[in-house]
Write a protein that binds this DNA or RNA. Structure first.
Lengths: 176, 176
DNA sequence: CATAGTGGGTTCCATTTTGGAACCTGTCAA
DNA sequence: TTGACAGGTTCCAAAATGGAACCCACTATG
């Protein structure tokens, strides 16, 4: 599968990955959420080459995640800002933060804390069910086709495979 | 910044991106959560080259996200399974699903639905504050240094920049 | 007026990473 | 004996990236 075709898959993960599934793009978005808006600031903070930065910003504009806004006339200057669709990437970025905090924090602890202005506390993000409000556990979620599924949907989990040879240890397989 | 050094940044996003910030890696993880466990199944579903697949699986093993488990002796066969740290990536994957569902679903609707076994409903994932339980809005979150921050921390937002020339439209800048 | 600085890029070339296809190794089944 | 299967590795050409230099419109300084 080529990179170009990814966005056409009948899979929301693939479609999102076709927009932001790139190391640099994710770091650019991190900086956007920290308030960075200018070409040279991104470049200096990330150590990315100008060439690749220009390419990624262009793609994020096309994808509707960022927009250019003038902040000064003569000389004309524009800054890159998150659109509403861009701001909606926040749960993904916070997901990255949470995993890093939990599994890569080192002995000194978290590099950054987040405070919720509404309640005044430092918090961890928690993923919950929109229907019952409980925290989500992957083992408690069942996946099934929706209206946008294609027949012969690519993502469908293959039937149980039991191995063709003798000596199988565990022919049965439980879900992830 | 080189790819290798990313994991050493004092930033949880950068550290997580150094593990999973790659198009193929994210798609491999999607398939892991759908129950795929074998080399050839990943390869056939993704259309990834075997070479790159072997490389990504190796890196995920090293990172402690996947583990190899024997499912058969003679000939020896092993499958790739998510570890606890791997299962903990679930919020990130669901974040990708949610964004794709919202912004790339097309007219036919979502390709896939998720049902919460605990409450029986199809749901959307919602990111909430661990302290007050409210849904999180990026504009309601304040970021500040934690115990693991480095002095001169790289991620710190630069001071307000107002432009050096006359004709500024909006010298002041509000946070993202 | 000449010179230097700034924001936001583009161009060029060498190095890395991918894509694509073929090939290898045990083991087993027909 | 031939073929299939799981799980890789090797090889080469094509594409992406890193690094550095260069460009342009405009402004500020001497």
């Amino acid at each position: 599968m080529r990179w170009q075709e990814l966005g056409k898959e009948a899979c929301s993960v693939a479609r999102t990955v076709s927009v932001i599934g790139d190391r640099w793009t994710l770091l650019i978005l991190r900086d956007c959420f920290l308030g960075i808006r200018r070409f040279d600031d991104f470049q200096a903070r990330l150590g990315i080459t100008r060439h690749v930065l220009a390419d990624r910003l262009r793609k994020l504009l096309q994808a509707g995640v960022l927009e250019k806004r003038p902040y000064q006339e003569r000389p004309k200057r524009e800054e890159y800002r998150l659109t509403e669709a861009g701001l909606d990437l926040y749960p993904i970025l916070m997901g990255l933060v949470r995993w890093g905090d939990r599994h890569r924090a080192g002995k000194r602890g978290r590099p950054v804390l987040h405070r919720h202005k509404a309640c005044g506390n430092d918090f961890e993000p928690v993923l919950t069910c929109s229907e019952c409000g409980e925290a989500l556990d992957p083992r408690q979620v069942h996946v099934h086709p929706g209206p946008g599924a294609r027949s012969g949907a690519h993502w469908i989990v293959p039937p149980e495979r039991t191995g063709r040879y003798t000596g199988a240890i565990k022919p049965g397989r439980s879900r992830a």
